[in-house]
Protein backbone atom coordinates (compact mmCIF):
# COMPACT_ATOMS: atom_id res chain seq x y z
CA UNK A 1 0.00 0.00 0.00
CA UNK A 2 1.45 3.39 -0.89
CA UNK A 3 0.93 6.43 1.32
CA UNK A 4 -1.95 7.79 -0.74
CA UNK A 5 -3.75 4.44 -0.62
CA UNK A 6 -3.06 4.20 3.11
CA UNK A 7 -5.04 7.42 3.50
CA UNK A 8 -7.70 6.34 1.00
CA UNK A 9 -6.66 9.01 -1.52
CA UNK A 10 -6.05 9.14 -5.25
CA UNK A 11 -2.35 9.62 -6.06
CA UNK A 12 -2.84 13.30 -6.83
CA UNK A 13 -0.80 16.35 -5.85
CA UNK A 14 -3.69 18.49 -4.78
CA UNK A 15 -5.16 17.22 -1.53
CA UNK A 16 -7.44 18.60 1.15
CA UNK A 17 -5.21 19.12 4.18
CA UNK A 18 -8.10 19.35 6.63
CA UNK A 19 -9.53 16.01 5.63
CA UNK A 20 -5.99 14.58 5.59
CA UNK A 21 -5.65 15.58 9.25
CA UNK A 22 -9.04 14.06 10.10
CA UNK A 23 -8.17 10.78 8.38
CA UNK A 24 -4.79 10.77 10.13
CA UNK A 25 -6.41 11.01 13.55
CA UNK A 26 -9.00 8.35 12.70
CA UNK A 27 -6.21 5.99 11.58
CA UNK A 28 -4.11 6.62 14.67
CA UNK A 29 -7.14 5.98 16.86
CA UNK A 30 -7.21 2.51 15.31
CA UNK A 31 -3.55 1.53 15.33
CA UNK A 32 -1.73 3.61 17.96
CA UNK A 33 0.23 1.53 20.53
CA UNK A 34 -1.82 3.13 23.31
CA UNK A 35 -4.80 1.14 22.03
CA UNK A 36 -2.80 -2.02 22.65
CA UNK A 37 -1.22 -1.18 26.00
CA UNK A 38 -2.72 -4.28 27.60
CA UNK A 39 -2.60 -6.57 24.55
CA UNK A 40 0.01 -9.20 23.70
CA UNK A 41 3.51 -8.05 22.83
CA UNK A 42 2.94 -9.19 19.24
CA UNK A 43 -0.02 -6.85 18.86
CA UNK A 44 1.99 -4.10 20.50
CA UNK A 45 4.86 -4.53 18.05
CA UNK A 46 2.52 -4.57 15.09
CA UNK A 47 0.85 -1.42 16.41
CA UNK A 48 4.19 0.37 16.69
CA UNK A 49 4.99 -0.56 13.08
CA UNK A 50 1.65 0.52 11.65
CA UNK A 51 1.52 3.66 13.72
CA UNK A 52 5.05 4.65 12.62
CA UNK A 53 4.11 4.01 9.00
CA UNK A 54 1.03 6.21 9.28
CA UNK A 55 3.07 8.96 10.94
CA UNK A 56 5.60 8.81 8.12
CA UNK A 57 2.86 8.82 5.49
CA UNK A 58 1.17 11.80 7.13
CA UNK A 59 4.40 13.82 7.33
CA UNK A 60 5.11 13.04 3.68
CA UNK A 61 1.65 13.92 2.39
CA UNK A 62 1.29 17.01 4.55
CA UNK A 63 4.43 18.71 3.28
CA UNK A 64 4.11 19.87 -0.36
CA UNK A 65 7.77 19.31 -1.28
CA UNK A 66 7.83 15.83 0.24
CA UNK A 67 4.44 15.04 -1.30
CA UNK A 68 5.71 16.18 -4.70
CA UNK A 69 8.83 14.06 -4.42
CA UNK A 70 6.86 11.05 -3.29
CA UNK A 71 4.42 11.40 -6.16
CA UNK A 72 7.25 11.60 -8.67
CA UNK A 73 8.83 8.51 -7.13
CA UNK A 74 5.53 6.67 -7.55
CA UNK A 75 5.69 7.66 -11.22
CA UNK A 76 9.18 6.14 -11.39
CA UNK A 77 10.75 9.50 -12.07
CA UNK A 78 14.39 9.69 -11.16
CA UNK A 79 14.83 12.80 -9.03
CA UNK A 80 17.89 14.98 -9.60
CA UNK A 81 20.57 14.25 -7.02
CA UNK A 82 21.16 16.87 -4.35
CA UNK A 83 24.88 16.87 -5.03
CA UNK A 84 24.71 17.11 -8.82
CA UNK A 85 25.65 20.50 -10.26
CA UNK A 86 22.90 22.92 -11.02
CA UNK A 87 22.73 24.00 -14.65
CA UNK A 88 20.35 26.94 -14.51
CA UNK A 89 22.73 29.88 -14.09
CA UNK A 90 19.98 32.53 -14.17
CA UNK A 91 18.21 30.78 -11.33
CA UNK A 92 21.41 30.66 -9.29
CA UNK A 93 21.91 34.39 -9.85
CA UNK A 94 18.43 35.06 -8.51
CA UNK A 95 19.20 32.86 -5.51
CA UNK A 96 22.32 34.87 -4.75
CA UNK A 97 20.35 38.09 -4.94
CA UNK A 98 17.74 36.68 -2.58
CA UNK A 99 20.46 35.64 -0.12
CA UNK A 100 21.82 39.17 -0.23
CA UNK A 101 18.35 40.55 0.36
CA UNK A 102 18.05 38.42 3.49
CA UNK A 103 21.51 39.36 4.72
CA UNK A 104 20.64 43.05 4.47
CA UNK A 105 17.48 42.88 6.53
CA UNK A 106 19.29 43.56 9.77
CA UNK A 107 20.62 46.85 8.41
CA UNK A 108 17.19 48.07 7.31
CA UNK A 109 15.76 51.22 8.87
CA UNK A 110 12.40 49.58 9.35
CA UNK A 111 13.12 45.93 10.11
CA UNK A 112 9.49 44.83 10.24
CA UNK A 113 8.81 46.15 6.76
CA UNK A 114 12.02 44.63 5.44
CA UNK A 115 11.06 41.25 6.87
CA UNK A 116 7.59 41.46 5.40
CA UNK A 117 8.74 42.53 1.98
CA UNK A 118 11.35 39.76 1.91
CA UNK A 119 8.71 37.22 2.76
CA UNK A 120 6.45 38.59 0.03
CA UNK A 121 9.23 38.31 -2.56
CA UNK A 122 9.80 34.68 -1.59
CA UNK A 123 6.06 34.01 -1.66
CA UNK A 124 5.58 35.43 -5.16
CA UNK A 125 8.52 33.59 -6.67
CA UNK A 126 7.82 30.26 -5.05
CA UNK A 127 4.12 30.47 -5.90
CA UNK A 128 5.06 30.75 -9.57
CA UNK A 129 7.22 27.66 -9.30
CA UNK A 130 4.42 25.74 -7.59
CA UNK A 131 2.07 26.62 -10.45
CA UNK A 132 4.65 25.44 -12.94
CA UNK A 133 5.13 22.24 -10.94
CA UNK A 134 1.43 21.38 -10.84
CA UNK A 135 1.03 22.15 -14.52
CA UNK A 136 3.90 19.78 -15.40
CA UNK A 137 2.49 17.03 -13.18
CA UNK A 138 -0.81 17.35 -15.00
CA UNK A 139 0.83 16.41 -18.31
CA UNK A 140 1.58 12.85 -17.17
CA UNK A 141 4.54 12.39 -19.47
CA UNK A 142 8.03 11.21 -18.62
CA UNK A 143 9.58 14.42 -19.90
CA UNK A 144 7.17 16.58 -17.91
CA UNK A 145 7.77 14.48 -14.78
CA UNK A 146 11.50 14.96 -15.24
CA UNK A 147 11.02 18.72 -15.56
CA UNK A 148 8.74 18.72 -12.52
CA UNK A 149 11.60 17.13 -10.57
CA UNK A 150 13.85 20.02 -11.58
CA UNK A 151 11.23 22.57 -10.48
CA UNK A 152 10.90 20.78 -7.16
CA UNK A 153 14.63 21.06 -6.72
CA UNK A 154 14.34 24.81 -7.20
CA UNK A 155 11.54 24.92 -4.65
CA UNK A 156 13.87 23.33 -2.12
CA UNK A 157 16.12 26.35 -2.49
CA UNK A 158 13.14 28.49 -1.49
CA UNK A 159 12.46 26.23 1.47
CA UNK A 160 15.99 26.92 2.67
CA UNK A 161 15.48 30.65 2.16
CA UNK A 162 12.33 30.54 4.30
CA UNK A 163 14.27 28.76 7.04
CA UNK A 164 17.01 31.39 6.80
CA UNK A 165 14.39 34.15 7.02
CA UNK A 166 12.97 32.60 10.18
CA UNK A 167 16.41 32.30 11.67
CA UNK A 168 17.06 35.99 10.97
CA UNK A 169 13.72 36.90 12.52
CA UNK A 170 14.58 34.86 15.61
CA UNK A 171 17.97 36.48 16.12
CA UNK A 172 16.58 39.98 15.56
CA UNK A 173 13.85 39.54 18.15
CA UNK A 174 16.04 37.77 20.68
CA UNK A 175 18.24 40.79 21.22
Amino acid sequence: MNYFELFGLEADFSIDLTSLATTYQALQKTVHPDRFAHSSSQDQMLAVQKSSQINDAYQTLKNPVKRGEYLLQLRNTELPEEQSTFQDVDFLMVQMELREMLAEIKFAKDIDTALMSAEETLDIQSRQLWQEFEQLLGQHSDTANQQAGEVLRKLKFYQKLYIELERIEDTLFDD
Partner: peptide, 13 residues
Protein backbone atom coordinates in the same frame (compact mmCIF):
# COMPACT_ATOMS: atom_id res chain seq x y z
CA UNK B 1 -2.98 -10.14 13.56
CA UNK B 2 -1.78 -8.29 10.47
CA UNK B 3 -5.04 -8.97 8.60
CA UNK B 4 -7.03 -7.67 11.56
CA UNK B 5 -4.93 -4.52 11.71
CA UNK B 6 -5.40 -3.89 7.98
CA UNK B 7 -9.09 -4.57 8.20
CA UNK B 8 -9.49 -2.10 11.05
CA UNK B 9 -7.58 0.48 9.01
CA UNK B 10 -10.04 -0.04 6.16
CA UNK B 11 -12.93 0.34 8.55
CA UNK B 12 -11.47 3.55 9.93
CA UNK B 13 -11.03 4.90 6.40
Amino acid sequence: AERRMDSSIKTAL
